[in-house]
Amino acid sequence: MDHFPTNWGRPRNDAFDAYNTYPFHVRPDNGPRDAFADNVQRTQQPIVTGTSVLALKYKDGIMMAADCLASYGSLARFKDIQRLHEVGKFTVIGASGDMSDYQYLQTTLDELLISEEITAADGHSLGPVEIHEYLSRLMYGRRSRLNPLWNSILVGGVKDGKSFLAYVDLLGTTYSSSTLATGYGAYIAQPLLRKAVEGREMDIDENEARKIMTDCLRVLFYRDARSLNKYQIATVTDSGVAISPSMELGTQWGFAEGIRGYGAQTQ
């Protein structure tokens, strides 16, 4: 069965052929590509993965943080991966989950921005609200075709003086809050973030926000076996998006001597 309506005859619906260009132009062929097309296997699990992304709202806007690791299973495979991505002038996204799907999303969003902002160039730019809605439609659409993009994504930004922070995942589920965390961070860091931020978003300056973030990242590095002590922090304020270079976490391991009950030592 050919599921592409423009191949059925005259298009019935503007949604499929907005400019009514059929039959003049090349008709897209979405039919089976080859003998193996029926045996294509869709994503069943993520392969190269990133772990938690953290984000919070503060006085000047939003702050987002992620470490630089892309794991291959339990192997710390790539240690200099950037998981925060700038989308337009007002938005930053951070992704955990499958890194190849994330790279696909980056490409898709970059192309979207070219057609929506550079080609149109009419002053109607996409803010974090629009980017988040677009991503949620994309993720839900993919999961409905049983071929999800295996990510949990945080979208944050500031446009027209309004800050925005929201979550979307591989099922298309969305929610919004003044602190958010994905993956293991949703269990370990989210309570810490809530305690530090909720109710006093407008009192936290950038320095304090950075301290909260690095404290949470440090706890995650201690607790999350898929994390790394190298991280980046992005801020979005009225003056735009800034993604820091990768930085190292100061850590303390002196206490490890005293831990008993694991490994080789008997007493």
Partner: peptide, 12 residues
């Protein structure tokens, strides 16, 4: 409205 949660810009 559905894709971007935004009223379409009139010029577009």
């Amino acid at each position: 409205k559905m894709v971007f949660n935004r009223p379409v810009p009139v010029n577009r």
